[in-house]
């Protein structure tokens, strides 16, 4: 898919997510909007995986470690055909499988996440299995930057470096905000690039809301014999002017006025990209 088409898709996914959260009156709005470009790129351009090949042992795999941004994942999966769009009308309703964190009861989702600090270790296991079986699939995981305070992240990072898992790509949605405020003041995890390099990763820094940079780095060959860490600088709440860079929008639900303003902003972007 060309870059403008991916940008359009990401904007459409933001709109669908905004609508879903408003409808259900729950969701991690700022977190979804932050990583919308990355998740859109993974499923529409980067990964060797389709709904038809989801059970194929050679498929690429994605584990969303920051499980709370599940609304964007649901919309990207529905758009890609993993399940009917209409299923998402049940999001967060009684007895719906579409709950507030990913579960593998849903077609397209590999593992249950939500408790932070699990995705990298799960991905290490999947990547190690590929090495043991001499398969050439790739494993992607997306973490938050606040999540880097979880010690289990670093146990997993150590193992990834130890086993030279060059088939593993970990992405940090580096929006510098978490629920209580700036990540740097809640618990400073910087310098992340240097830390991951010290753990044996090939570290690449990009603008994580720039589709061109996302696609370029995620499709690049890895000949380093190291796992790759993409430090993706992003804007929390990206695409909704009044939600951008606001920690308070971590899991805020828009009011009716905010909702309409957000719709207008996103539709303007979609209109511009559709030309």
């Amino acid at each position: 898919m060309d870059i403008q088409a991916l940008q359009l898709k990401a904007a459409q996914m933001r709109l669908a997510t905004w609508q879903m959260i408003y409808r259900a009156k729950t969701g991690h709005t700022g977190s979804d909007l932050s990583c919308a470009d990355i998740v859109t790129a993974l499923y529409n351009d980067v990964m060797q995986q389709t709904p038809a090949t989801f059970t194929n042992p050679n498929r690429d795999r994605y584990v969303q470690s920051k499980g709370h941004a599940v609304e964007i994942l649901y919309n990207v999966l529905a758009d890609a055909g993993y399940f009917p769009q209409a299923d998402l009308l049940t999001y967060s309703q009684f007895n719906s499988p579409y709950i507030g964190h990913p579960t593998n009861h849903i077609n397209g989702i590999e593992m249950n996440t939500g408790s932070l600090g699990h995705g990298l270790g799960l991905s290490v296991g999947m990547a190690l299995a590929a090495k043991l079986d001499q398969r050439d699939y790739r494993v992607f995981t997306l973490m938050g930057d606040g999540e880097q305070a979880e010690g289990s992240v670093w146990e997993a990072a150590m193992a990834a470096g130890n086993y030279h898992l060059d088939n593993l790509t970990a992405i940090i949605d580096h929006n510098r905000l978490q629920i209580s405020g700036p990540t740097e003041s809640v618990m400073n995890s910087e310098p992340l690039a240097e830390k991951y390099a010290a753990f044996g990763f090939d570290v690449q820094e990009i603008d994580g809301n720039d589709m061109n940079q996302i696609v370029t780095v995620l499709t690049a060959e890895n000949n380093t014999n190291k796992p790759r860490l993409i430090l993706a600088d992003t804007i929390k709440g990206k695409g909704i002017s009044f939600a951008e860079n606001q920690a308070s929008w971590h899991h805020r639900v828009p009011t009716a006025d905010e909702y309409q303003q957000g719709i207008d902003e996103l539709q303007t972007v979609i209109g511009g990209l559709s030309k």
Binding site: V63, E110, G121, L122, G125, M126, S152, E155, M158, A159
Partner: peptide
């Protein structure tokens, strides 16, 4: 290594891939 939490998580990833 001496990382029991990671041993369980990595094992789950391994199991997931067969």
């Amino acid at each position: 290594g001496i990382a029991e939490q990671n041993s369980v998580t990595v094992a789950s990833g391994l199991a997931h891939s067969g």
